[in-house]
């Protein structure tokens, strides 16, 4: 007959086979339905994120010890702390990605082997994205110019970057957001949260 469940003292046939890839290594589990359900498996694509998060937890503690009065890093927008994220594996809001930027980048590298998005972007920001790409490119060139001690070129580049950054802040004039033009059609309608930057007012 088939394979037996991996759980100790369980003689049922393993019908749930889970293969996870953690840091390039394959980990397998063969469980019966009951033990799988008890473990809450499979269901979701939680691939051992707890392992990855364990690393972050120790960083969070180190940070807390280092920080004044032992305060831990907290997202200013939603109040999620790094250790809360560590235990749940879930962020509380989009701002968490900024609040915990260093950890996020490290984590992204571990999970995805990358920390730079290259896919689709909403139309409303795709022009912003190309602007930002241009700015990043210019910053690289600026550094090179400084290294070459070509200060004239560096100054020109600095001005250009400044100009582009202002454009970015102003938002693309040619990109009206149709849903917002009409009253009562604000995209993220409820509670008027739509354009409010996460933070400040919220407890």
């Amino acid at each position: 007959m088939g394979m037996k469940c991996d759980v100790e003292n369980c003689d049922n046939e393993a019908t749930v086979h889970l293969t996870e890839i953690r840091e390039g290594k394959k980990h397998e589990m063969h469980l019966c339905e009951r033990c799988a359900a008890e473990k809450g498996l499979p269901g979701k694509a939680h691939f051992s994120i707890s392992d990855l998060l364990a690393g972050i937890a120790s960083q969070a503690q180190a940070q807390a010890q280092k920080g004044r009065r032992g305060k831990e890093a907290v997202c200013p927008a939603c109040g999620t702390s790094l250790s809360q994220f560590q235990s749940s594996g879930r962020f509380g809001c989009a701002e968490c990605y900024t609040a915990f930027k260093d950890d996020v980048m490290g984590l992204a590298e571990k999970i995805h082997d990358s920390s730079q998005h290259v896919g689709k972007a909403p139309k409303r920001v795709s022009s912003d994205v190309s602007l930002q790409k241009e700015i990043r490119q210019l910053q690289v060139e600026l550094k090179r110019a400084i290294r070459r001690e070509d200060y004239e070129k560096a100054a020109a580049m600095r001005d250009q970057i400044k100009h582009l950054e202002e454009n970015l802040k102003a938002g693309p004039p040619e990109m009206p957001q149709p849903a917002e033009d009409k009253p009562g059609e604000t995209p993220a309608g409820p509670g008027g949260h739509a354009k409010k930057p996460e933070g400040g007012e919220k407890k």
Binding site: A45, I49, G89, T98, A108, I111, S115, H117, V125
Partner: peptide
């Protein structure tokens, strides 16, 4: 959405 990290999701996976 963030240009660096793309569409922002509750779980970083």
């Amino acid at each position: 959405f963030s240009p660096q990290l793309g569409y922002l999701t509750a779980c970083p996976t």
